[in-house]
């Protein structure tokens, strides 16, 4: 029941953004419509366990830190790949390496893999069946251990702090 309210409020905010009119009336309209739509579909998300509202609010500082990190990494990534593209002869050593991860929940693994895709020279291909290894395609491998180390040290700490 509490979950239903949280989802309705989220979808109300999304409706405000999509319709391009942020006001209380428009938000209430979206929230009520999504509540009526979500009510008959309760069987689809009943088994999902998530945090309470207080934990979500306490996480806002670490979420802000994560998004700052993400913006800087995206800028660095684009400049790095653009440098490779405008070379006269393309000289790269691509390959797929396996990276062990510490994230356990669905949300954590999804966020981590999306973050890896948006950061310099790496692209997530798949997650192994036991959810402990991500397979990552790198555009230029100098040292595989160094890439694993940088993912574990720099990215995963922020994701674990913000989403688990």
């Amino acid at each position: 029941m509490k979950k239903l309210f949280v989802y309705s409020i989220d979808l109300g905010i999304v409706w405000c953004f999509v319709s391009g009119n942020i006001s209380i009336i428009n938000f209430l309209f979206g929230a009520i419509i999504s509540y009526l739509l979500l009510r008959p579909l309760r069987a689809l998300y009943d088994n999902i366990t998530d945090d309470s509202l207080e934990v979500l609010i306490l996480k806002i500082p670490s979420l802000m830190r994560y998004f700052m990190k993400l913006a800087i990494e995206i800028l660095k990534a684009s400049i790095a790949v653009a440098k490779i593209i405008i070379q006269p002869t393309i000289n790269i050593k691509p390959g797929i390496i396996s990276v062990p991860i510490r994230a356990k929940t669905d949300l954590g693994i999804t966020t981590l893999s999306n973050t890896i895709t948006l950061t310099p020279g790496t692209l997530t291909v798949d997650v192994s069946d036991d959810r402990s290894i991500l397979y990552v395609h790198c555009i230029d491998i100098d040292d595989a251990d160094e890439i694993r180390e940088s993912i574990r040290e720099e990215l995963e700490d922020y994701v674990l702090e913000a989403f688990e």
Binding site: S78, V81, A82, I85, I86, P94, I96, L123
Partner: peptide
């Protein structure tokens, strides 16, 4: 530049790097 990478890079995975990020 990203679309130029789609033309120049050698295989599917490297082309995905160019189009996704840039």
């Amino acid at each position: 530049l990203g679309m130029l990478g789609l033309l120049r890079l050698p295989d599917v995975y490297n082309r995905l790097h160019a189009t996704t990020k840039i």
